[in-house]
């Protein structure tokens, strides 16, 4: 059967790209609930460095992760220019502190390459794949891995 528009759409993905720790990352648009300006959070005791604390999102208590710190790129300075990407994963809502949000990227499935065999296993698990855009490379964040490893560390 010939390729229909529908089948084509199936292989087409939309990502939101952002910058964390100076590097370019992206998340699939369907995972993202909203993007907010950074506001101070309430710190949580006994949590890893990249768990900044919890924030009040319209009555829900959501944890905020510093993605840069998570990838070992140093803590993101907390200032009002930074943004929080609110995302849904596994029925939970979480926030990711990043430096800035860049653009919406629409790519074909075939354009997503597998993560090369990089040294850090934690980092490798946290990256689903890579997309090349012009000269640069965007990493697709594996939210499940981010949250799971955080939980594992903290709990």
């Amino acid at each position: 059967m010939a390729e229909t528009a529908e089948a084509l759409a199936d292989t087409q993905f939309e990502f939101i790209t952002f910058s964390a720790g100076g590097q370019s990352y992206c998340l699939e648009i369907t995972q993202i609930r909203e993007i907010r300006r950074w506001t101070p959070v309430t710190a949580l005791p006994h949590t890893p460095q990249d768990v900044l604390g919890v924030m009040n999102l319209r009555g829900a208590v959501i944890p905020i992760f510093d993605l840069s710190a998570r990838f070992g790129l140093g803590a993101t300075p907390a200032n009002e220019r930074n943004v929080v990407i609110v995302a849904a994963v596994d029925g939970a809502t979480i926030g990711l502190l990043v430096e800035s949000v860049s653009e919406i990227l629409s790519v074909d499935k075939s354009a997503i390459q597998e993560t090369p065999d990089i040294k850090s296993e934690a980092t490798r698990n946290s990256i689903l794949g890579m997309i090349s855009v012009d000269e640069s490379m965007v990493r697709v964040v594996n939210l499940d891995a981010v949250v799971d490893s955080e939980k594992g560390l903290s709990a």
Binding site: L44, V61, K151, A155
Partner: peptide, 25 residues
């Protein structure tokens, strides 16, 4: 407000609440 619904249990902390200023305690 449960901490576990979006995150995980934290030793010494049973839950969270939202104060009058909108901040979480």
């Amino acid at each position: 407000k449960s901490l576990e619904s979006n995150y995980a249990a934290i030793p010494g902390v049973s839950a969270a609440t939202i104060l009058g200023d909108g901040k979480i305690a």
